[in-house]
Simulated scan of single mutants.
Amino acid sequence: MSRTPDFLAQGHDERDPSPWLALYLDQSTPLPDEVKAAWLTDSSSGSRQYLLPFLRPVARLTIILIQVVKVFVPRNWSHSKLLHRLLAWGLKRFVSPEANWLILRHFHLGSQVLGFIGRNSPAPVGTSPLEPADIDALKDETFLKHDLNLFNFVIRLNQALRDKGLVLGKAPQVDFSMIRDPGLRLSDMPHGKLNFLDLQSAIELFTPLYQLMLTDNDFWRAANSLQLDETIGIYAATLLGAPEHLILVNNKHPLVPLSTLRAGHRLVIHGLSTEMLHSLLRRMQAAHGATPTPEQPLA
Rank of each mutant, 00 (worst) to 15 (best):
N251S: 08
R221D: 13
Q112H: 05
P57M: 01
Q159P: 01
G126H: 03
E230N: 12
D175L: 08
L87T: 12
R180H: 06
R93C: 08
P129S: 02
H146D: 14
I269Q: 14
V58L: 13
Q112L: 00
L199S: 08
G126V: 02
R282Y: 03
K139M: 13
K164I: 00
Q200Y: 09
L31N: 05
A263K: 10
L228K: 07
N152W: 09
L240K: 05
D218E: 15
S18R: 03
R15D: 07
W220I: 12
T127L: 04
H79W: 10
M178K: 13
D140N: 12
V167I: 15
A237E: 11
A59G: 11
N217I: 14
M1P: 12
E34W: 10
D16K: 11
G264T: 06
L205H: 01
L261E: 12
P132S: 05
R262D: 15
H191E: 11
V73L: 13
P132W: 02
A99C: 04
D6M: 09
L205F: 06
R15I: 04
S43A: 15
I135C: 10
T291E: 14
P129W: 00
F196G: 00
F153L: 02
W220P: 03
A236H: 08
L240H: 06
T127A: 03
L161P: 02
G115D: 04
G233A: 06
L199Q: 07
L83Y: 07
L61R: 13
S177M: 03
N76I: 05
T41N: 07
T127G: 02
A22F: 12
S78G: 04
D218G: 00
Q159F: 09
L281N: 00
T62V: 03
Y235W: 15
A223M: 10
D216K: 13
L31H: 01
A133Q: 14
H108I: 00
I247D: 12
L102C: 02
P257M: 05
H108W: 14
P297I: 08
D134F: 08
P190N: 03
Q200E: 15
G110I: 02
N149T: 04
Q173D: 13
L21D: 01
D188V: 03
D16Y: 10
L104P: 01
T29A: 13
G110K: 04
E14W: 11
V68I: 15
L148G: 00
L248S: 07
L240F: 07
N120I: 08
P122Y: 09
T127C: 10
L240W: 03
K81N: 09
S80G: 12
K145W: 06
H106N: 11
P254L: 04
P190E: 07
Q173A: 15
N149R: 01
Q67T: 15
I64R: 14
T207E: 06
Q227I: 13
T142V: 15
P5M: 01
A242M: 15
N224M: 13
W89S: 11
D33T: 13
H108V: 00
D216I: 04
E295R: 15
Q10K: 12
D216P: 02
N120D: 07
Q112I: 02
S201P: 03
L23P: 04
I117L: 06
D136P: 09
V71C: 12
D188M: 06
K193Q: 05
L212H: 00
S78T: 14
F94R: 02
R56H: 06
Q200L: 09
E141C: 11
D218Q: 14
Q27A: 14
A133W: 01
